[in-house]
Design a protein around this nucleic acid. Structure first.
Lengths: 111, 111
DNA sequence: CCAACGCATATCCATATGGGTATACAATTC
DNA sequence: GAATTGTATACCCATATGGATATGCGTTGG
């Protein structure tokens, strides 16, 4: 088997930096394709393809508005990712606390 | 250009479900390769390759112990992912609140 | 010291990605 | 209705993924 499709799930879709940029731009407000083209500095076909991937994993919705297609963020699609990493958060925070303890000890030894 | 390397960053490394499984297993405790092979039910070479990817993005550390190689989770590597998705969390929570408001209104209209 | 063990690496293959570029198509404007 | 605008799609290509399998290599046990 080859690598999982980018459309397999949100994890794969979001692994591409350009697609994260798109989501970041849409987090501010909904936008037509051309606006995203300007923001990303990519060719329009590429942006359309990235948007297709994001659509397929449900990370964005589209709406026709005259001859424009307005894309809007669908944040819930990112929840699975958040849920997964969040379970690791306490682990690095614990480590950080440990480090703080060590530094505290060193400080006391100085005095 | 082709797709970004899986070793490009944590986002790409973690897009592969098997690698998330490995991290999940290491979140409990450090483990030698064979233990991960048993847990994942994958061939040993594949596990070793996945571990290599995780090493390259700094998500795991290795330690030689006799003829075993013990892998340990390095949770900080996941922080960038957490930071990125966390900034979206309030967006889906807001939507959820809105939904709750609507349901509340509907309930009142019933009475 | 030789066999068995634990793991990493090399090679082969099918797949599809993402960039480039050309083009199709629908909506609008003149 | 012809020209223009806004997007999507099709095609070509280089790349490297992930699975399969064989093999190399250091460590330990008999």
């Amino acid at each position: 088997m080859a690598r999982a499709a980018t459309t397999a799930d949100a994890f794969n879709a979001v692994a591409e930096p350009r697609r994260r940029e798109i989501l970041d731009a849409l987090a501010q407000r909904e936008r037509p394709v051309n606006e995203l083209v300007d923001i990303l500095g990519l060719a329009q076909p590429h942006v359309s393809r990235h948007l297709r991937v994001l659509r397929e994993v449900g990370a964005v919705d589209v709406r026709d508005e005259g001859r424009q297609r307005v894309y809007r963020l669908n944040p819930e699609a990112l929840k699975p990712i958040h849920d997964w990493v969040a379970s690791y958060q306490h682990l690095w925070e614990e480590r950080f606390d440990l480090l703080e303890d060590v530094l505290e000890d060193l400080k006391e030894q100085e005095n």
